[in-house]
Design a protein around this nucleic acid. Structure first.
Lengths: 209, 209
DNA sequence: TAGATTGTTAATCGATTAACAATC
DNA sequence: TAGATTGTTAATCGATTAACAATC
């Protein structure tokens, strides 16, 4: 079963893909990939073994084959359609982010409640009113939702996304969302990241001082 | 020594803080905090025990006291000064992100190489030329750098930040950065997050179909 | 005292990695 | 065959959590 890949391994697959994309060679060894990715080579081999063995002993892995295999496992072959809720600075920035299309994601719609924004387009993507969420999600076959609203409306937006059938949410709002069973939420909290950085900055100072 | 707090615990402290900030009550039990944060209550108690015991048996934790204690441990009492390199959509969005100032971070400068942007201000923050990085970092006492450039120049920017004495980098570019010993990098890769989401989206479909 | 909840121990779990047989 | 590197085992490590004595 596909679900038997450990979460830690799944989280590293995009990293390996990123490393492979920057390589010009045809064959790569686990040692090379490991040092590029900054991890242990045994870990690389173990991680890749979940994909079904694709390396050649004594030689290494075929870069092109490996890229396809990882992309396939990540479900990237069938392009996913994304909606962004919250057409503020961050939402608009994400709507224009080229990295998404490079990895098989299409931003099909932005949503907001501001009448001054609704109806406009950002980089070719139309801004709809939040009330239209249900019909647009269905019409555009949207499977991933990104929440870029402030903290206040985040939970309500999550509820609407879940009700519309969206099962994957990437949450940029500084809020802990309650969602029904079966909905996967990943939180990307910029101040959390900064606070973690800040902690290590300070213990370094302590150690030095 | 401060560094003896496990990395997994450090990564959860901002989450607890976020949960506590949303609470109106004066006292909270590990059970309540755990269910709000979505983790096990034994984990909460263990995590908090690294801060030095602050709870009262039979009662719980004082919310206000706990907030201050976590903030203190995270080094947030002394506000950190941030530079953002790359004044594109994402960089400008981050420069205007209120969440930073709410958590004791000040964005002191943006950097870019585009002559059309240099000299402008975004939400009160000035855009400098990348060549001025060294002097501005020193002058503004910048300790954290955020890289919001495309993949191409990301490594060069990291080199310049490290050379300027910045020891904490938050990297939004889809690139694996090589940095000197002692520099902490956290990568925030939006397509990585989407790919992980996409994986779980697909195994769910497999299980259902 | 009786009830509640912490702080901590010890068992468990899962992830990491050294080591090496398999094999190209 | 000799050299290299995979795939996998088994040991190790660190994080999680059930359980409970301590104690408010």
């Amino acid at each position: 079963m596909a679900g038997s890949i450990p979460r830690a391994t799944v989280a590293r697959l995009p990293l390996y893909l990123l490393c492979l994309e920057g390589m010009s060679q045809a064959i790569v060894s686990s040692d090379q990939l490991a040092s590029t990715a900054g991890v242990n080579s045994a870990k690389v081999r173990k991680d890749l073994s979940y994909l079904s063995p694709k390396g050649t002993r004594g030689v290494g892995y075929d870069v092109k084959e490996l890229k396809q295999l990882i992309a396939l496992k990540l479900g990237r072959m069938a392009s996913s359609v994304v909606a962004i809720v919250g057409a503020g600075n961050l939402g608009q920035a994400l709507a224009g982010f080229e990295g998404f299309s490079e990895h098989g994601f299409t931003v099909a719609a932005l949503f907001d409640t501001d009448p001054a924004k609704v109806g406009n387009t950002v980089g070719g993507t139309r801004i709809y009113h939040l009330d239209e969420l249900g019909s647009v999600v269905a019409g555009e076959a949207i499977t991933i939702g990104m929440i870029t609203t402030p903290e206040g409306p985040a939970q309500e937006v999550a509820d609407k996304l879940a009700a519309a059938g969206v099962r994957s949410i990437l949450n940029f709002a500084p809020a802990i969302l309650k969602v029904p069973e079966g909905v996967e939420v990943r939180r990307v909290d910029l101040s959390t990241e900064l606070q973690i950085l800040s902690y290590y900055l300070n213990i370094e100072k302590d150690a030095a001082g």
